[in-house]
């Protein structure tokens, strides 16, 4: 089938629109919103609010989304005995800033139609029928490989990544409310883990999950969340995440420092059979020093 914006299972709020242009009769305009509780968790919003400064705040995530994204980031990279996590790194700001700009707009994406949902069954596009061609999963000693539906299935949506997130977050909250008895950010750590695994699995028999996620599907959204949370933990601090380079510190990633001033350097590190842990250096530090090549 050709996928345009799915409009199934939406609730509609009818508002009067006396000024409806071009029609002589005042009519109601139907404004579709995705089904979602708009009751915000005021405590959590207040907590986030307390971290806002003149140069650190939100550009696109609304207060409801801020709380969910923060909870997702902490579930994926928790603050624990290993060290600082997504919270200290400011991952939620990274995601917010990226979604507000080129990334969120899909600046480099090819977003022209037709939009066709990858699927194993047959599809009809502009009158032409393309029959079903599936492969069966292969089980071997190390596990089962589920074949992809077909090539090129990544991101076949008519909307940009900002919208992808808006939809995905709404679906997630709806799923958690329906299946787990509360919104994601209110669930126990163990239940949050279960939810993330269920999203990854994206099982066809998980009816509640399949009902909640209309596109992106649960696995696609999990991958995107994971990609962006880890990117917020490990990208340069200039983007708003990885604050204090805590993400790099965890991995012992040296970024732009090779110990040249202490008699090391990249070649010595490369040929050494005993590795040296070096502190990282960010692009900002390098620029401030007027350094680099």
């Amino acid at each position: 089938m050709v996928l345009f914006l799915p409009i199934s299972r939406r609730e509609f709020i009818k508002i009067g629109a006396a000024g409806a242009i071009g029609f002589g009769v005042a009519s109601a305009i139907e404004i579709p919103i995705l089904e979602n509780s708009i009751n915000n968790d005021n405590t959590k919003i207040s907590q986030l609010q307390s971290q806002i400064t003149q140069s650190q705040g939100f550009l696109t995530l609304n207060p409801t989304e801020q709380v969910i994204v923060e909870a997702l980031a902490e579930a994926i990279i928790p603050t624990d005995s290993t060290g600082p996590g997504a919270k200290e790194a400011g991952v939620v700001y990274f995601i917010d800033h990226m979604l507000a700009g080129n990334y969120g707009k899909g600046g480099n994406y090819f977003l022209r139609g037709p939009f066709v949902t990858p699927q194993s069954g047959s599809v009809t596009v502009m009158g032409a029928v393309y029959p079903s061609t599936t492969k069966t999963p292969i089980t071997y000693s190390a596990g089962t490989i589920t074949p992809r539906l077909q090539a090129g299935t990544s991101y076949q949506y008519a909307f940009n990544p900002r919208e992808f997130w808006r939809r995905g977050l709404t679906f997630l909250e709806n799923y958690c409310t329906a299946a787990k008895g509360g919104k994601f950010e209110t669930l126990s750590s163990a239940t949050q883990t279960t939810v993330l695994q269920e999203m990854f699995d994206n099982s066809a028999t998980n009816t509640a999950l399949q009902t909640a996620f209309e596109g992106p599907n649960a696995a696609e959204f999990f991958n995107e969340i994971h990609d962006m949370v880890t990117a917020g933990f490990w990208s340069d601090p200039l983007y708003g995440g990885n604050q204090g380079m805590v993400g790099w510190e965890l991995l012992a990633f040296n970024a732009n420092y090779w110990g040249d001033d202490i008699g090391l350097g990249a070649v010595k590190l490369m040929v050494a059979s005993t590795p040296t842990r070096l502190p990282p250096k960010s692009l900002g530090q390098l620029q401030k020093e007027g350094g680099g090549i």
Partner: peptide, 20 residues
Amino acid sequence: TIRNNMNQFALPVRRYTKNI
């Protein structure tokens, strides 16, 4: 666009991704 055989509908490559 890419597909695996001539019976399929070929889907366009729409983005680069981090994990591809």
